[in-house]
Design a protein around this nucleic acid. Structure first.
Lengths: 209, 209
DNA sequence: TAGATTGTTAATCGATTAACAATC
DNA sequence: TAGATTGTTAATCGATTAACAATC
């Protein structure tokens, strides 16, 4: 229920953290939890937890806290991981291969159902249970499968072209590993581990925390 | 030169983006660049570029812009990637293995010089040019090598213990892949790809950009 | 009831941006 | 000089936090 107020970007990032935290609490057999407890585990303020949740509804009981399982289920729906998402990987290089092998994704409701590469010498090779397909097979693949998310793991110069092709085929969003800003009207999440390393060295040199 | 004013967190994140952008411009043979051009490539405002840079000095020429190579070199020093950093990986699972194989890190001045695991059945196996060592060999390894950064790629329950061990051995900072908040006085950068996926599905469901 | 904790408001804090004098 | 673009100030915008009435 409730307001269609604009959700601040930092809140979106924290939703996943809350969800993860609730999962842990649930595993630990904790049935009720106060915003203060969640905040402590995540190293933030309890008022921030309450404020963030308030964008989506009223999930707590005053004087008591939140029902762990109930809030977890609510967050699951809000984030959209109450169902499996079909994902394809574009680019069977180092990153693409690693992602297909990474079982963590599937656990979090993301199923990689295909991997594609432009290099014909890679086509036909197996990665886990998947066989690398050629880029030219994409169109056909979209006809036979529901594909929602594409992981862009191709070199920089090929990324934008692939994005346009996939947009035309009806993809819904991108996880982008190419070190470039993608031009698209669809949602994109950029991932660049080397940027994290650079933030770290900056902090180390300045003795920041 | 200049002020020891506090650097806003978002600025730290953008430094790497600026550096990357300057690298491209340099490759493209562009000798001078205006803040407007940098901003356009990154999808931000030119005043933000100028303001961000101003925390570290005056690098431009009015009416002209910035000398690409010069600014790149300055940023390199500011970020701290004007030298190589020695990195070890803790945990030879999926993520740890992928990182050792990922040549992108070395290109960005991060050399992985060791990988460690608690599982003795993995010890002795090769990943690229490295041989997996047992956790118990860490102390000795620190005596024989300069180790600055540790990548935590072990399961959640082992992460905090490893952090404390490494802190005692004199590590300077952590890249953390464990889905947990590490308690340490040293700088940490958390990396969690599944969080990016969750932000994406949230946006897809709400038709946000 | 007494104690605890929510949901929300208002105050504070921090980051972004427009605007412009300085100057190449 | 005329035009362009910086570096910086001040205004705006957005996010966090403290505080507290509501209520379990």
């Amino acid at each position: 229920m409730e307001n269609q107020k604009k959700i601040p970007k930092p809140v979106i990032k924290r939703l996943g953290l809350y969800y993860r935290c609730l999962n842990r609490l649930s595993d630990e057999g904790i049935d009720f939890v106060a915003s203060k407890d969640i905040a402590e585990r995540l190293g933030i303020k309890s008022s921030q937890v309450r404020k963030d949740l308030s964008y989506f509804g009223e999930f707590g009981k005053r004087g008591v806290g939140y029902n762990t399982y109930e809030l977890m289920t609510k967050l699951e729906k809000i984030i959209g991981v109450n169902k499996y998402w079909n994902v394809i990987v574009i680019g069977a290089g180092n990153i693409g291969t690693a992602l297909v092998n990474y079982e963590g994704l599937r656990k979090e409701k993301f199923s990689i159902i295909g991997i594609f590469d432009a290099d014909r010498s890679k086509v036909g090779k197996k990665i886990g249970k998947l066989t690398i397909k050629h880029i030219s097979e994409l169109e056909d693949f979209f006809k036979k499968n529901i594909v929602e998310i594409a992981i862009i793991a191709v070199p920089e110069n090929a990324a934008q072209m692939m994005v346009e092709k996939l947009e035309n085929l009806g993809i819904k969003g991108f996880i982008n590993f190419a070190p470039i800003k993608l031009r698209t009207k669809l949602p994109v999440e950029d991932v660049d581990i080397t940027l994290s390393f650079k933030s770290l060295t900056f902090k180390i040199d300045r003795e920041l925390k």
